[in-house]
Design a protein around this nucleic acid. Structure first.
Lengths: 207, 207, 207, 207
DNA sequence: CATGAATGAGAATTCATTCAT
DNA sequence: TATGAATGAATTCTCATTCAT
């Protein structure tokens, strides 16, 4: 489904998957600490528990690792989000629930979100679109949610308004991590969630 | 006022300023294209119009350049913003005006904002605080604006609500640049401004 | 035994030893010709028969090479000296024999001694003590030799006199190399040895 | 008298002399601390109290400074030594006096001696001979002294023995500085002088 | 499949020296 | 004479990637 294929010299698909998971885990931790450029492939291999030679059996280049990392994080975020939202109540209530759940995911996956946020731009022109696509899919989740509520007549928003709102939700969630140095000094996650729900729903002038 | 001093081997202060401006201009353009890490000091020197030796007469290390770039961009943004806001009408109207002006600045300085946004995190632990401080000052501008309106009784917001609103304004403005690949396909700047003003003031449930 | 460990990225200890021997050999020859500071790491790599990258798999910095060189030379000198002295006759005769052997070693290892003599001082404050310690050990060999003879009643020297004599022996031996430009024009090694034995044992006034 | 001429762009001989003295003084201090290679011309200029441009009005290259330094030190040592020895008593007594005086000069000029000792070898093939010549002149002083005493019949030494003895005196004096890390822990200058006089005159087998 | 030694292009930085003012 | 800004060749060290075992 539109994923970029990263070739491997190894045939055993199961093994590829397992090794890559180890790699990604190690890499996230290292990227978080030192950033993509300051992390060496040797360090990643070592932290992954195998040799540099083996590392290159499962990827072609250092950039592949970054791609796998971003890919994996998006999948993780999306998976958790979909689990937390699923069927449940719809209407405005459902949107609020989704936002709260999303903020919770951002909080739980802070390190990953940060890495994705800061390093994705280092991807080559070839790989970047795949990641931006994921970012849009993320936004689309909230667009759809809002769209349903509009359809039910509970909200009155144009399509462009829906899009703007969805983008806002997404980055205000991410902001919790990439502005943690400011926000997490002022608010607890619960406070932040309450305040932002208020702002998102009612605005500054809000009732 | 709390700026980090970057030492130079050259004594003539005027010259330092002039050369550094050339450097920063060249660097912004290169960083935008290839990012900080993929840009070499030689490229910066060349694009600045002087030799590598001369470059190092005005800075101590590559990181100094990044710091000067970030510093310069913040100053630029803030300067323009303050010019555009100045005395003028207060009240909610004033806030709206300020937000519009801010979005306009973001649009005009897209390249710079993008660079600052993506590369600032590469600053060392020593220099980073200076830049984060600037980011907070940016936010503080809107906090103060809102605070005045609250004082005048036109808005009813707690301090924490003011802070959240200010952060939202700032990053929704920045989002116009760092999500340009999505947003600028959907909206013109005017549309974006109108829609986001609506969202910020009245929220999803909006009037 | 109190050696400074020089870390390597390579795991195979045997290989490390072999490669470092090649490196040291090449470095001695280059240092002798141009001195430590005028010799580049690339030259050392090339003369050693491997690439610059490989060189740095076996050392951390250029200074490590100098340390390895000094270390190796001292070990070489000491080893040869101990082989030449071993059990043999004791008494004054033994001392004379040892001095002659030592002078012979100095003569055989002129290049090495010269390098060690002239470049050791370029070692960092961290590494220098290890080399000075070796120099003292060298001196201690002669101190012990003299001490035994004193104990046997054949010589009458205080401890401080023993130390002075030992230092004199050591540097008069080294002088053969570092004043070669003067001495080796006047004397053959045999002459030098005879004359200096005379001076050392009986002094200027000597019988 | 066989000195190497170092050209200058400046005409005023008095000025040249004065500036060069300042330069040499600054350089000795810096060389002692960091060695010739690790000292930059900028540092020397600064420590001398003039600009880098001015520095190069009085020398042609960095090496010229080293030559001037060595030259100046030798002249200084020789001057002091000749003052201390002059007419005075002759015979063995005179030799002893000269040695003591020489050791005292070495002690007083430790920094200079050390620099000369360790850095002279960095001189180019062109300049080195001039310095070695000075070293020989130093030795010649003691050769002459000894020669006179031999002539007077108070000592019985061949020419080669005289030369060896003179070399020994010179380097045992220098050793006081370049092995200070060992010797100056054990002896005071007076002790060292007494012990070495004893060794030099009567040898290990002593009186 | 796994290993890790070897490679060398490339990057940041330094510093002796020059020359216009 | 004095100054100090400009220069760029030279140097150390890094690190992604390969390939023989």
């Amino acid at each position: 489904m539109g994923k970029k294929e990263v070739p491997s010299l190894v045939k055993d698909e199961k093994l590829i998957q397992r090794r890559r998971e180890e790699m990604v885990k190690a890499a996230v931790s290292l990227f978080k600490e030192n950033g993509f450029h300051r992390t060496t492939t040797r360090e990643i291999a070592k932290a992954s528990g195998f040799s540099i030679g083996t590392l290159y059996e499962y990827i072609r280049s250092k950039e592949d690792i970054l791609y796998l990392v971003c890919d994996s994080i998006y999948d993780g975020v999306k998976l958790r989000l979909q689990q937390d939202i699923n069927g449940e109540d719809s209407g405005i209530q459902g949107v609020e629930r989704a936002i709260s759940a999303y903020f919770k995911v951002m909080d739980d996956m802070q390190d990953e979100v940060l890495v994705m946020y800061q390093e994705a731009k280092s991807l080559s022109h070839e790989a970047l679109p795949y990641v931006l696509k994921k970012e849009l899919e993320m936004t689309a989740i909230f667009e759809e949610l809002l769209f349903k509520v509009v359809k039910q007549g509970e909200l009155h928003l144009s399509e462009k308004e829906i899009q703007a709102a969805a983008h806002n939700i997404v980055i205000i969630g991410q902001m919790w991590t990439f502005r943690r140095w400011a926000l997490q000094k002022i608010y607890t996650l619960e406070e932040y969630t309450q305040l932002q729900l208020q702002q998102l729903l009612y605005g500054i002038k809000g009732a």
